[in-house]
Design a protein around this nucleic acid. Structure first.
Lengths: 253, 253
DNA sequence: GGTTCACGTTGCATATTACGCAACGACCGT
DNA sequence: ACGGTCGTTGCGTAATATGCAACGTGAACC
């Protein structure tokens, strides 16, 4: 809708990948150097980008200034922190905290695992709902009608051989998730990793977010993964309590 | 330089303070609603803002996506992490990691203290160099000529009764800092808080960043603060080693 | 249940604003 | 000293963002 703003935002995404020169940027987004220069100058004046030496541009400090304010808003993040940090410290596995945002999952927090297998995830990154444990948990928490609506609007990109690729299977999976109170991603997103996830609830039992543990398959087989479910659910419930959840703890099987 | 982009960036800062409605934003930045709406739509399409309900706008996930990428770039942050986290865990005090960026200090990382006295600082926030311990450390590390240049370009806003308010005093302070290898902020920035800071060095001894401990005066008097200097310096040196510093450990007194 | 706000939203005409161009200038390497 | 590679500038043009006024929509109130 606003061309120059749009271009500026594209520039920011480009710079996120790597520091770039004016010419490189101009070529990549296919606009004249002078235009890019003007945009960069405006961005720079607000500290959204900074120059490195004479030619390179990098993302600036305003980004993490705004980001840390934006994150403080997300109360789940803070209230879940102790429980998740503890789980991470005790198990040494990678923990993600995620929320649902129009058709996708957004990672709101991440606790790096000790066995640092490079995982392509990051706070702020988005991922599909159909092939992630957190995605399943979040959608499973919605009203049946909404589930169907979402299930039918998805893209079902097959990330691995195990990825669910049609609405019917996805809805069936969601039923299971809703019944059991946790979700599994059996290498449906990335080939060498499987995950379990559980919901974090706030007042009135509304699901605010989902917490997951991601473990390389080489490190733990599927049965071993399932054995971790109780620990994860316990941590998620603990986080729920700190997030305003007052529902009964003896959840019906 | 680019009006619409400029306005959009202002909108983002406004939203950082609090979620706002279209009308509120239009009034605050003094442009027509329809204009704001178009900007918001573009921002929304890139996930820089998100709608909350029908009327409220909030900062979106793209911000922390970019921010975490931007922060990963700043290697000091990662390499200093273990040493600073340890110091924070052991002492329970608030630790800041900061870098210098055109005339100001930028907080790159923060480890919250246990005695959670509300401090008005945040990752990404900027602060003046003349009244912060980290600022003194960073400027003191520069060549004498550059120090003078900076000292003369500063604003010297008096934040408290102790704030240094002229170039001569600031330069004298910098000499002391350079000589001792650490800096003190004796309630020069905020009335009830004093700090100590030390440099973190990389290859060739270049100062990459400064680490500081901030402590409420009620909790510890000035002598007590000074007594913490060795611990801080040790942690900073440790961080230096992990940041590529190979200089001699027996620094001349 | 109807009336009234308080918003968000749309289409359109205007000129302001951002655009691309081409020439300039700074810097670096040879 | 020369060529090349970038960043930078001024300018005329027209595309683009703007403000306006009218329209929807939802909630609140009587």
């Amino acid at each position: 809708m606003s061309q120059s703003l749009d271009r500026a935002l594209v520039i920011l995404s480009e710079l996120a990948k790597d520091a770039k020169t004016l010419d490189q940027l101009a070529e990549q987004i296919d606009v004249h150097k002078s235009t890019v220069l003007r945009l960069l100058r405006t961005l720079e004046s607000h500290h959204f980008v900074r120059r490195e030496g004479a030619r390179y541009y990098r993302l600036g400090s305003a980004l993490f200034d705004l980001a840390s304010q934006a994150l403080e808003d997300r109360d789940v993040r803070r209230s879940s922190q102790p429980a998740l940090a503890e789980l991470n410290a005790r198990t040494g596995h990678t923990i993600h905290l995620a929320t649902y945002e129009d058709g996708e999952v957004v990672y709101v927090d991440k606790y790096e695992g000790r066995h640092s297998v490079r995982m392509y995830s990051r706070v702020g990154k988005r991922a599909p709902v159909h092939c992630t444990a957190v995605g399943k948990v979040l959608v499973a928490a919605m009203a049946p009608a909404r589930r169907v609506e979402i299930a039918e609007s998805l893209d079902y990109v097959a990330r691995t051989g195990n990825t669910i690729t049609n609405p019917a299977d996805f809805l069936a999976e969601l039923d299971k998730v809703a019944k059991h109170g946790y979700a599994v991603d059996n290498a449906e997103h990335e080939d060498f990793i499987h995950c379990v996830a559980a919901p974090i609830r706030g007042e009135d039992g509304v699901v605010l977010a989902a917490a997951s543990m991601s473990i390389p398959k080489i490190l733990l087989d599927f049965d071993g993964l399932l054995a971790l479910v109780p620990e994860l659910v316990a941590a998620a419930d603990n986080a729920s309590v700190h997030s305003g959840w007052t529902g009964n703890t003896e959840r019906g099987q």
